[in-house]
Simulated scan of single mutants.
Amino acid sequence: MKVGVTGGNGFIGRYVCEELASRGHVPLVFDHRGRAERDLPWEVMRGDIRDATAMTELAAHCDAIVHLAAVLGTQETITNPRPAAETNLMGGLNFLEAIAQYDLPGVYICVGNHWMDNSYSISKTAVERFVRMFNAHRGTRVNNVRVVNAYGPRQQAAPPFAPGKVRKITPAVVCRALSGLPVELYGGGTQVSDMVWVGDVARALVAALEAAAAGEVLDHVVEVGPTTSSSIREVAELIIDLCVARGYPRVPIADLPMRPGETPGTAVTAQTKTLLSVGIDPSSLVSLEEGMARTVDWFIENRGIHWDVPDTETGTETGTETGTATGTVAGA
């Protein structure tokens, strides 16, 4: 199949394209970022998911669509919810209308913290419900895949390490640990927010797409996450231990107040048995220990390219990669 991937230039999107290609499919990246044509091996269609005409054109040029593109951010979208609402809601509806028009199979990526009251979770979960409505009343073939915190190589860090606009757990902790800075954890890291290797996320998304293409529209959400839960503090301690094992000094953990948009005392986990419905054995997922070791090694190898230690005098990064667009992106 020729598969359109909205947000295919994003963190998860690139892994999805690689997974599609490994299974014999042809990725077609749909992204609004101009740098995509220069460094992606896939065909690229420039466009914005908020543009209904552009999304219809994408559907006219492929056999299926994986919809990843979204405005991300938990606390980042609270003070200005409009970009998340407009992009995520209207983009999601444009995706559904386009595949309904051309009778294409599709996959929609859902958020693990779907019950939380922040702009990102609210807007993403509304579209998850629209998927169920379209499947029931419009005859679409779309499977929902809910993903907890994806991590792995190539995930963009936020300032002062790199120009990313959304602070994500793994790059934030890894970059601080490798820079000799205290690791800052919201809420002290006591909350459970499970982590999943990004390659496993891509595997589940493509498997769910292939199921939809075969006419198997699931009556439940496929949830991608580890079989064993860990607190954010346990994840941070693992990363610090991995950095120490590689010759870096041990850094302390600094506790910060819980950030806005998160619900204290709740756990972001996955019902991993749902993976069986798309032919994936939960025990086959990459373990947290192995995945984090690969990720730390990648960040070490890519210092000065993908990220850099901040200048202690100016508080800015000293050689981060330039030209990385932000805003409508995919992944976690």
Rank of each mutant, 00 (worst) to 15 (best):
E128I: 00
P81L: 13
H114P: 02
Y108N: 11
D63L: 01
H61N: 10
Q101D: 06
H114K: 12
Y102G: 01
G91S: 04
I122G: 02
Y151W: 08
A98D: 02
A98R: 01
V44W: 04
R146E: 11
L89S: 12
A100F: 01
P83S: 03
E57S: 13
M90L: 15
V111H: 04
S119R: 03
M90C: 06
W42K: 02
R132G: 05
V71N: 04
E43I: 08
S119H: 07
Y102M: 06
R154A: 12
N94L: 02
H67M: 05
N118K: 11
D51W: 03
T77G: 06
R46N: 10
R146P: 10
P83D: 04
Y120T: 03
M55L: 08
T140S: 05
N94W: 03
A150F: 06
P153E: 09
I78M: 06
V147D: 05
L40G: 08
E128M: 14
I109C: 04
N135F: 04
V148R: 00
T125E: 04
N135S: 12
N94K: 00
E128G: 10
A52H: 02
D39N: 10
T87R: 03
H114W: 09
A69L: 07
V142H: 00
E86S: 10
T140I: 02
I65T: 01
V111M: 12
N88T: 07
L72I: 15
N144D: 12
R146H: 08
R132Y: 08
C110M: 15
A100G: 04
R129K: 14
A136Q: 14
V107S: 05
A136G: 08
G91L: 03
L72S: 11
A60W: 02
R129M: 09
P153M: 10
V66D: 06
D117A: 14
Q75P: 14
V111R: 02
M116Y: 11
T53G: 15
N94Q: 08
A85C: 13
N135L: 07
T77Q: 11
G91R: 01
A136S: 11
A69H: 03
G152M: 15
D63H: 11
A150V: 07
W115V: 10
Y102C: 06
R50F: 05
V145T: 11
D117I: 12
I49A: 01
C62V: 05
N144A: 04
P105C: 05
G73S: 04
A52N: 09
H114E: 13
P153W: 13
E37P: 05
E86I: 13
D103A: 09
A52Q: 10
E76C: 08
V111G: 14
N143V: 06
H61L: 09
H114R: 13
A150R: 01
G139V: 05
R154I: 10
C110W: 01
A85V: 14
R146D: 12
M133T: 13
T56S: 10
Y151A: 03
E86T: 15
R38N: 08
M45F: 05
I109F: 04
G92L: 10
